[in-house]
Nucleic acid binder design. Structure first.
Length: 345
RNA sequence: UGGGGCGUCGUCAAGCGGUAAGACACAGGAUUUUGGUUCCUGCAUUCGGAGGUUCGAAUCCUCCCGCCCCAG
């Protein structure tokens, strides 16, 4: 690879190993570390700078707090308040990492941006770039990249795509690569030590208070503390004792109401999606795909029927449990990501 | 206060003289580069209260308290 490549370094083991690997085949490597304004550990930039120094690559901190707040955090709060369930990691990948950060990388002279994602980019005969699952099935993160496009992918590099997590750990140990002691994985990075609901509540302009919990028959069986603390398919927190557990089936923000049902009420044979994104040519006929409805969903065979420019109905071969509005539905054909949309109902 | 019934964990509920099941809820943990799901663990030294019978009572007896139903 004869390109100048910037690498997004968080301080974690994955991006550290990615940077190390990149040094072996890129023309030149530049380390970038972006901050969101929600960091717990304010020393991280310096620590990451230290890692870059040891790798002997130039380091640039990038403050993306404004963009992060506007494009990730605020939409996250808004989505919860509207009764849907956001996926901030997907928003971050498109708007921040392969958005603002990629722009910053280019301004520094880089032609591509590398990250520690477990995913692969492969060009076809016409040099169009395609997104594929990472080699490590247990770690594959292509789902989170479903809203990227071919143009962006042509500037994306995933050095860990062919590796397993175990291999990454071994390599790090072997080469003496020590990440800044941060935990392997947290929950949502900006929520930190509070619950999601608490985070949303403190950042919400309009407070959502308690409201009724109704069964599918319309019977009121309880009171919820605020719809932003719930998502379709959720069981915990309802506080409605019964012979068997209740799950959230629907959320009505207008009425500030939660509708609950039994586990069997969670299954849907189709789902509607909007904000469609295609990583291949937009199909003009119903498309057979395997759809992931959430990260770590094994995928369900389905047919995508386009109903409008960026709207479609996804019909599953077999009913799927608890598709949640706001979550991404990512379409695969084999290992290749062909498209994605946001679940609406 | 005539007659009948019932009071066991936050909720529902087993138990019927042999030393308190279970489900739901809740809490904590595990898993997880989103939320949710899932999994694991914990959760009544005590059975409305007070006495009594018994080697032994939530289980039998007495009284009291509370609730429900039928009569009035």
């Amino acid at each position: 690879m004869n390109r100048v490549v910037a690498v997004a370094m968080s301080g974690g083991i994955d991006s550290l190993v990615a940077a190390w690997l990149l040094k072996r085949y890129a023309k030149q490597v530049i380390a970038l570390h972006f901050t969101t304004g929600f960091e717990t550990d304010k020393d991280t930039p310096d620590a990451v700078a230290g890692l870059a120094f040891r790798l002997n690559i130039p380091f640039h901190p990038v403050d993306l707090s404004s963009a992060f707040r506007k494009q990730v955090v605020d939409p996250f709060v808004r989505t919860y308040l509207s009764g849907e369930t956001p996926n901030p990691c997907m928003a971050c990948n498109t708007a921040i990492k392969f958005g603002a950060l990629l722009t910053a990388a280019r301004e520094l002279g880089a032609e591509a941006l590398a990250t520690g994602h477990y995913a692969r980019v492969r060009p076809d005969a016409r040099h169009h770039c395609h997104l594929h699952k990472g080699a490590d099935a247990a770690k594959d993160q292509s789902y989170f990249l479903g809203f990227l496009n071919q143009k962006i992918l042509s500037a994306a590099v995933f050095p860990l795509g062919d590796m397993t997590k175990t291999e990454v750990r071994h390599l790090a140990a072997q080469e003496g690569l020590h990440p800044t002691h941060r935990q392997e994985s947290q929950d949502i990075c900006f929520v930190r030590n509070q619950t999601c609901a608490a985070f949303v509540a403190t950042r919400a302009n309009v407070a959502h208070g308690p409201g009724p919990i109704l069964t599918l028959d319309g019977e009121r069986i309880g009171t919820h503390p605020g719809i932003h603390g719930f998502t379709v398919g959720q069981r915990r927190g309802l506080n409605c004792p019964s012979s068997e557990p209740y799950y959230v089936v629907r959320i009505h923000p207008g009425e500030n109401t939660l509708v609950v049902g039994r586990k069997t009420d969670l299954y849907a044979d189709r789902v509607r999606v909007h904000r469609l994104n295609w990583l291949v040519a937009r199909p003009d006929v119903p498309l057979r795909v395997t759809t992931r409805l959430r990260y770590r969903h094994q995928g369900a065979t389905a047919t995508v029927h386009l109903t409008d420019t960026d709207v479609a109905t996804v019909r599953f071969d077999h009913p799927q449990k608890a598709p949640a509005p706001g979550q991404g539905a990512v379409f695969y054909q084999g290992d290749k990501v062909v498209g994605a949309g946001v679940i609406t109902a």
